[in-house]
Simulated assay, not measured.
Amino acid sequence: MIATPFFAIEQALRTVPFSMSADHVHQAHEIYYLLAGERYYYINQRVYALQKGDLIWISKHDFHRTSNKGSDSHERILINFDEAFVASSTPVTPSVVQSRPLLPEKSFLLRPSAQEQRKLEHLFQQMLDEYHQEHAYRHMYLQSLLLQLLIRIGRIQSTAPDTIAPERSEQQQRVYSVIEYLHAHYAEKLSLEQLAGHFYISSTYLCRIFKQTTGFTLVEYLQDVRVQQARAYLKETNWKVTAIAEKTGFDSIAHFGRVFKHFTGHTPLQYRKAHKKE
């Protein structure tokens, strides 16, 4: 059976603090555009500070999440789509258009000019209007609008001297070092006191700068890393759940089950049944 090409767009305004409880990954590409406010965007162990008019391209399979920055209020547009939606609308292979990929493999942050923002927002509005109607040729029209958007993103990227780099203050650099350590040592029995001692800082200061930088508490982040790895083991191996709990650093099967269900909404066995590779 051939899967139906997937495309979705939504606009959301939030007037109260909002942070995702865990980072997540899609099988589709994602475009995030900030219409108003400020946000922190966490992608693959790095934090980006977004301001009004910024656009984030999140490549499929990249873990990501958003969290509060500055004002509690923000408004954004979110688009998700797969390659099939683009490929079915053009005879040109979507991965190679001239010298620049139409669907970039790596995630990045763009900061368009005011003129470019107006053009992008006009395209977004057309897409939103069409998406919520049942006009004739709706599918084809959305494809054409998405292609225009991808081309415009590519042109902005080609004229920009560099994409916007992740945040790199001294505090954030220290947190990145902690993050890298957690990814390397998640299977070990880690404690806050041990981590603070390893990085020669107080546990109180470590907790504060980690939360400010990532939006996670340190414990939440470590649990998230462990659950990500447990997901991979459940999909790719036949190891028993008790073995996976041990290999991902959980102190008991009961604790593993509670944390795994909190992050995924499923028990480990339910997750394996739904995602096990043939």
Score class of each variant (00 low, 15 high):
L195F: 09
A84N: 09
E10N: 00
A184C: 01
A3G: 07
P166L: 06
Y141I: 14
T237V: 08
S252F: 09
A254W: 08
L192F: 03
S169T: 15
F199M: 10
K247Y: 11
L110Y: 06
E188A: 12
A49V: 11
G197S: 07
E246V: 08
D62Y: 15
S95R: 13
A114V: 14
T66I: 15
Q171W: 00
D224A: 12
I58M: 10
L145E: 07
L13R: 14
S107Y: 03
T163R: 05
P104G: 01
P91G: 13
S95K: 08
K247I: 00
R118E: 14
S144W: 01
L120W: 07
Q172I: 13
S191N: 10
E83M: 10
L103Q: 02
I43G: 06
C207F: 04
Y141V: 12
K211I: 04
M127P: 06
Q45N: 11
A184I: 04
S169W: 06
Q11E: 14
A28M: 03
L35T: 07
Q27G: 08
I201D: 09
A114E: 13
S177Q: 15
S252T: 07
R76G: 08
H132S: 14
S99T: 06
E246L: 08
L234W: 05
A114Y: 03
L149I: 03
R152Y: 14
T242D: 15
R208M: 09
R155T: 10
L103H: 00
Y41S: 10
K247L: 08
Y48C: 03
E10T: 01
S177V: 00
S89N: 10
R174L: 14
M140Q: 15
G249E: 05
M20R: 05
R14F: 12
V225W: 06
D82Q: 04
I244S: 09
I58D: 03
D82V: 04
R258S: 14
